[in-house]
Design a binder for these strands. Structure first.
Length: 442
RNA sequence: CGGUGCGUAGCGCAGCUUGGUAGCGCACUAGUCUGGGGGACUAGGGGUCGUAGGUUCAAAUCCUGCCGCACCGACCA
């Protein structure tokens, strides 16, 4: 991508309305633009990151037999009346009516819609289990939207739903999704703490939140440091025992938000050197519902004895658009964003230091043409001062900067700088290809 | 929804108290110089002062209504 042709308008100064680092940087880097309170346009750079995160999550689900569908943003009100949530959801739900005065709503979530769907298709115990997900825009009319896309009204969410025979099987789905979430967040390079979100009676609702630890987070968390001793990357999710054991190992350790925090339990069960109190942002939330929605929608199946049973269901959400901000919140410095390699909008930022110099131009052009085939490259081909290019590339947070200057070229070198460390080194132009292969591998 | 502020050029702001025909920095346009960390100089362009009404010879400025945005509190991925 040539920066001269891109739709990229960056800001030197911080917009006055932004308080959170991620919000400031997303505006300054030209990733988003506010349309009205809590509603944003995603500009090319922001959309590219959003799509990368979305795809990474999608693929992780599909690989694990959770299949993608796409439900509408607009829903009929009757299914919400059926579940009893039409009034319960309150003013956060945006209700609208069509030209025939039919009551519709902009979906804040999709339990009703998907249970309605599944109730028609699932007939036999042989049809279960089924796991489905979609990534769709949601609208929740927040009382007070703030912090950019961190807490906005229109947001992109991945929501998955599980349908099982009974509690035992549903619990396996829950654990499978739990570990899948841990794997996804690890892939995204995020330090995530799973915390207990509801402590109901035995057999009651299971629920956990996934919190990204950052100082600016709105949720206070209390946890046992050893939560991180568990490496989930090798857990085989197709194996019921493995998934459940892995989940229970993690959940056996103390980890709660302030609402569920019990100081005496914390002090008595966690060794003092392992007690961590910090802040974070909720980026995922999973629930086991039991038969709550199946009852409302008559979602039954016939068991092997010929009688009807209610389906057990659960739902599993990840705030995709919120993750963009959350990742920035966890990866920035005073110069700008520092993208983790997995979600960076571009791998390489090519800076032509002297756009009035034939040697530099020629080399940069060739480099761009060659390496664009293998990597995603931003080529800053604008005829502006170097300082401008350096500051801009640092702001955008591209992990590797290739700096092409006249003097270095005369010695057959180019400079390669890493955004995260700020360190740079001179590399012989003949060794660039292997160097990049090494640096960009992940 | 309650409490508090704000709305003047693309962005950040001054001007408002004490009414007199709108200004600064950045950005933008043209040119010259410059060329490894947001460079310098010269010359330019761009504003229904959120909106509607009122007071006045005269309103960005005073008064009233409305709209929008943000901050502090209770909800949430």
């Amino acid at each position: 991508m040539r920066l001269s042709k891109y739709y990229s308008f960056t800001l030197k100064e911080n917009p006055s309305d932004a308080y959170l680092v991620s919000h400031k940087l997303m505006l300054r880097a030209g990733m988003i633009k506010q349309a009205t309170s809590g509603i944003y346009t995603w500009l090319p750079l922001g959309l590219k990151v959003l799509n990368k995160i979305k795809d990474l999550i999608r693929i992780a689900h599909i690989k694990n037999d959770v299949y993608e569908i796409l439900m509408p943003t607009i829903q009929p009100s009757d299914i919400w009346i059926k579940s009893g949530r039409y009034d319960d959801y309150g003013k956060e739900m945006l209700k609208i009516s069509d030209r025939n005065d039919n009551e519709l709503l902009y979906g804040p979530t999709n339990e009703e819609m998907i249970t309605d769907l599944v109730s028609n298709d699932i007939k036999s115990y042989k049809d279960l289990p089924k796991l489905l997900f979609h990534v769709q825009w949601k609208f929740r009319d927040e009382i007070r939207p703030r912090f950019g896309v961190m807490r906005c009204r229109e947001f992109l969410m991945k929501d998955a739903y599980s349908f099982d025979l009974d509690y035992e099987n549903s619990y396996y789905s829950y654990c499978k999704m739990f570990i899948l979430y841990m794997k996804i967040f690890k892939l995204l390079g995020l330090k995530i703490i799973p915390v207990k979100a509801a402590s109901g009676p035995i057999g009651g609702a299971l629920s956990h939140e996934f919190i990204l630890e950052t100082s600016s987070g709105e949720t206070q968390i209390f946890y046992d440091k050893r939560v991180f001793d568990h490496d989930v990357s090798n857990v085989n999710l197709t194996n019921k025992t493995d998934a459940i054991v892995a989940t229970e190992n993690i959940l056996s350790l103390y980890s709660r938000t302030s609402e569920k925090h019990d100081l005496s339990v914390f002090k008595n069960t966690v060794e003092s050197q392992n007690q961590i109190i910090s802040n974070g942002i909720e980026v995922g939330h999973i629930f086991y519902f039991g038969t709550k929605y199946s009852e409302a929608f008559n979602a039954n199946y016939i068991n092997n004895k010929g009688s009807k049973e209610l389906i057990h269901s659960g739902s599993y959400g990840i705030g995709v658009s919120r993750l963009v901000a959350a990742i920035i919140e966890a990866n920035n410095d005073d110069r700008g964003i520092k993208w983790p390699k997995k979600v960076t909008p571009y791998d390489i930022g090519l800076i032509n230091v002297r756009s009035d110099n034939d040697t530099c131009n020629c080399f940069s052009e060739n480099f761009y043409k060659k390496f664009s085939k293998k990597y995603e490259v931003i080529y800053d081909d604008r005829n502006v001062r170097v300082g401008d290019k350096f500051h801009n590339m640092d702001l955008l947070g591209i992990p590797l900067q290739i700096i092409v200057g006249e003097k270095n070229l005369l010695n057959s070198n180019i400079e390669i700088k890493e955004r995260v460390t700020g360190k740079s080194e001179l590399i012989n132009i003949n060794k660039v290809e292997s160097y990049l292969e090494y640096k960009c591998e992940f």
